[in-house]
Amino acid sequence: MFGVTSTLNGSLLMTHWDVHHLPRADGKTFLVTGGNAGIGYFVAEQLAGSGATVLLGSRNATKAETAMASIRSRVPDARLGHLRLDLSDLSSLESSVDSLEIERLDAVVCNAGVLLEDQPRRETAEGLELTFATNHLGHFVLAHQLMPLLEAAEAGRVVTTGSFVGKSAELDLDDLQSERDYQPKRTYARSKLAQMLFAFELDRRLRAAGSTVLSVVDHPGGALDSLTPARPVHPAPGGRKFPAGLLLQGKEAGAWPAVRAVLDPAVRGGEMFGPRVFGLRGEPRREPVRGKLADTALAARLWAASVGLTGIGVTR
Results as ranks from 00 to 15, higher is better:
residue 105 L to Q: 09
residue 127 G to Y: 01
residue 241 K to P: 00
residue 242 F to T: 12
residue 211 S to Q: 11
residue 92 S to T: 09
residue 7 T to P: 06
residue 17 W to R: 02
residue 299 A to D: 10
residue 19 V to H: 11
residue 249 Q to R: 09
residue 252 E to W: 13
residue 57 G to P: 14
residue 253 A to L: 14
residue 219 H to K: 06
residue 257 P to M: 05
residue 120 P to F: 00
residue 5 T to G: 07
residue 36 N to W: 02
residue 134 T to H: 00
residue 273 F to P: 10
residue 121 R to Y: 00
residue 3 G to D: 07
residue 258 A to V: 15
residue 213 V to Y: 05
residue 134 T to R: 02
residue 94 E to M: 06
residue 291 G to N: 04
residue 261 A to G: 13
residue 142 L to M: 08
residue 274 G to P: 05
residue 314 V to A: 09
residue 20 H to W: 13
residue 290 R to G: 02
residue 164 F to L: 13
residue 229 P to E: 10
residue 44 A to N: 01
residue 31 L to C: 08
residue 281 R to P: 08
residue 220 P to M: 13
residue 177 Q to M: 00
residue 33 T to C: 01
residue 75 V to H: 07
residue 291 G to C: 03
residue 72 R to A: 15
residue 289 V to T: 12
residue 256 W to T: 13
residue 208 A to W: 04
residue 32 V to Q: 08
residue 34 G to M: 01
residue 213 V to S: 08
residue 297 A to K: 14
residue 135 N to R: 05
residue 160 T to A: 14
residue 208 A to I: 08
residue 263 L to E: 05
residue 293 L to W: 12
residue 237 P to V: 12
residue 110 C to Q: 10
residue 259 V to C: 14
residue 232 P to W: 07
residue 225 D to A: 10
residue 244 A to L: 15
residue 306 S to E: 04
residue 306 S to H: 06
residue 66 T to H: 14
residue 267 V to L: 13
residue 279 G to M: 04
residue 84 R to G: 14
residue 182 Y to W: 00
residue 243 P to M: 08
residue 218 D to N: 15
residue 191 S to P: 09
residue 162 G to C: 12
residue 37 A to K: 10
residue 94 E to D: 14
residue 172 D to S: 00
residue 149 L to Y: 03
residue 98 D to W: 09
residue 227 L to F: 06
residue 34 G to I: 03
residue 243 P to S: 08
residue 151 E to R: 06
residue 216 V to H: 11
residue 138 G to C: 06
residue 151 E to G: 03
residue 294 A to C: 09
residue 212 T to E: 07
residue 124 T to K: 02
residue 292 K to S: 09
residue 220 P to L: 10
residue 283 E to T: 15
residue 75 V to C: 12
residue 231 R to K: 08
residue 93 L to G: 13
residue 302 L to R: 07
residue 243 P to K: 07
residue 42 F to W: 15
residue 64 A to D: 11
